[in-house]
Design a protein around this nucleic acid. Structure first.
Lengths: 252, 252
DNA sequence: GATCATAGTCGTCTTCCTGACGATAAACAC
DNA sequence: GTGTTTATCGTCAGGAAGACGACTATGATC
């Protein structure tokens, strides 16, 4: 109510990014090693300050380009190019989430096809794709036996929320295609679902479901045999964004 | 990346509230008349600055109490009392959304049972429940023939997003019970769905669906005849929060 | 009190979707 | 050719939902 512009508490506003992709049958997120305190040397989500003249989605798109080279994909433009899907996730503003000052972070979720290794400011050793389970386990040991420190700040919570959003959203939308290259097979799309959900799906029922949903997939006419076995039809994402009825995630 | 606390652009952070309820078979939102520029005299969503030591959800709960007297309801506590459901909606940060300065607003969505008339700072004429269609139509005429000005700032967009969230969320969650008093009948719950979706539902199929979903409704043993007709069983909300399979919104 | 209107509740039938799973097809490796 | 892998088509049973008939229990009206 008291809309007095001169009497507001000072806030910093940042964007943090949950960038997800599927690599080697696992759901992976982009992590950046922090180069300065606090949490120096710990892994964190990419992010940065929102500039004074920048919209939140612009800031998120800019950070995405800086960290991955990915061009953000406007959801209102259905033309599926090399861009990643980008949407706002949630905002985190606990007064103590940054030990130095009051920082409100508007987290965004980006979904991208499998990419070459990332670079963070040109330094590849300070950026990596890591399986989300590895990033989320607190104080355990990673795949290489190295001890794993939890993510900096509240980034474990943000990552967890982003993963949950992605898991639920591919149920009722065609968003899983954002993890695929522009042309893909039904089997590749199925492996995306299996990696994101961490379950095995019946190939026959999956095939029936996705090819039977109007507007989900458009055949390109080509075939490929890059997965081995019988050649598979190639598809690209159709115009439909909402799946009705949804793809059902198996129980337990 | 440049996490320099001294070199951040100055932001103000506010919370805005989309408070929804069902009155007279219509989905209504709480609107407050602005007492000062900009947009003086125009209707707006309730909201205010986030205080320096306050979490975002705390700020939203505080605003909700100030504007409606409603106690916010922690989603992790299933005990359904007189509290309203409160959840974060989205964050709006266009650089020009407030003409005076850079304001980032974290919008929240509140769902409440039908309430007595609201008071805004004790002044009842500056607060009202208005059907959402009335608030969202741009430059038309209201139910009383008075010309309707659009909501202040980007509040029409925020309200629209909040309504869409509510409409989709009652499909797959038991959130519609947040619009009902603590004890309610199946018919009253059905009228909530009908008001929020703006459609007519078959009373028999609806009854089968909600009483057949385990954990959705718990009979209290009592009956009521407050709607006229044959007395109806009274229920209270069960522990289930997710509806599986969901309640299907009729097409078109 | 009989009749009517209103709302609630129980069933039935058909249709659609899904899960389980058999069978065939087309590539590659040996 | 034989075996392996992946893709694709088909069949069948069970469950859920839409359409809708039938019955019940109140209050209102004549």
């Amino acid at each position: 109510m008291p809309y007095d512009p001169s009497a507001f508490p000072p806030f910093a506003v940042t964007v943090d990014l949950v960038v997800l992709t599927v690599r080697r049958h696992a759901l992976c997120a982009l992590a950046i090693r922090r180069g300065e305190p606090p949490f120096q040397g710990r892994w964190a989500l990419p992010g940065g300050f929102v500039r004074a003249d920048e919209d939140l989605s612009q800031a998120a798109a800019r950070e995405l380009v800086e960290e991955t080279g990915l061009c953000a994909h406007d959801p209102s433009v259905p033309a599926q190019d090399n861009g990643a899907h980008l949407e706002q996730l949630a905002t985190y503003g606990d007064p103590k989430r940054d030990p130095r000052m009051r920082v409100v972070s508007v987290a965004h979720l980006a979904l991208a096809p499998d990419l070459p290794a990332p670079r963070a400011g040109g330094d590849a050793s300070n950026a990596r794709w890591a399986p989300v389970e590895e990033l989320l386990q607190q104080g355990g040991y990673g795949r290489d036996g190295e001890p794993v420190a939890p993510l900096a700040f509240d980034h474990a919570q943000i990552l967890s929320d982003g993963v949950e959003r992605a898991r639920s959203k591919i149920e009722y939308s065609s968003l899983a295609t954002a993890f695929c290259p522009s042309e893909f097979t039904v089997g590749e799309l199925r492996r995306v679902y299996e990696a994101v959900w961490g379950v095995a799906l019946d190939p026959r029922n999956f095939h029936r479901k996705v090819t039977g949903t109007p507007g989900f997939l458009v055949p390109t006419g080509g075939t490929t045999t890059r997965q081995g076995g019988r050649p598979a039809q190639l598809f690209r994402a159709g115009g439909a964004t909402l799946l009705n009825p949804p793809m059902l995630r198996p129980e337990v």
